[in-house]
């Protein structure tokens, strides 16, 4: 075998012993399920999804992510935001405004209570 073109020893090790649960935090599961449901609803083809996810993985690697598998759902989420804006379901500004609305709501909610949009009293604009 000829490996002259690649220095395999320079690659980080494969994390063979990492037996993390399939979703390590609840948000990973929400992001996963949203992509599957949008595909089922016909918003995008799975082939388009794979392209979007592959592009986000390459972006993250270019920015220095060692990409050892633990950041996978961050790439998934970035791909989801990219594809919903490409499909004009919402715009980046809409996502950012809604994110701020959730932040205000969280900060107005006593710890331990469910966080609901608008909890801080200011109106939530449709996105």
């Amino acid at each position: 075998m000829n490996h002259a073109d690649v220095d395999l020893s320079a690659l980080p090790e494969i994390p063979v012993r990492d037996n993390s649960p399939i979703f390590r935090e609840p948000w990973e599961a929400r992001a996963f399920a949203m992509a599957v449901k949008l595909n089922e609803a016909g918003v995008f083809e799975w082939r388009e999804w794979v392209e979007s996810l592959g592009a986000e993985i390459r972006n993250a690697q270019a920015k220095g992510d060692p990409d050892l598998g633990q950041t996978y759902y961050l790439h998934w989420l970035a791909a989801l935001e990219r594809i919903v804006t490409e499909k004009r379901i919402t715009a980046t500004e809409g996502l950012l405004a809604r994110k701020d609305a959730w932040d205000r709501a969280a900060k107005a909610t006593p710890h331990g209570e469910p966080i609901e949009l608008g909890r801080d009293g200011s109106p939530v604009a449709p996105a």
Binding site: W27, R30, A31, M34, L38, L74, L77, L80, E81, V84, I89, T90, G94, L95, L96, R98, K99, A101, W102, D103, A106, K107, A108, T109, P110, H111, G112, E113, I115, L117, A127
Partner: peptide, 19 residues
Amino acid sequence: ETSELTDTELRVRALESIL
């Protein structure tokens, strides 16, 4: 004490509530 969501959690909630 009030609640705090991480930047990532905020992004996921934003997306889900819009969808």
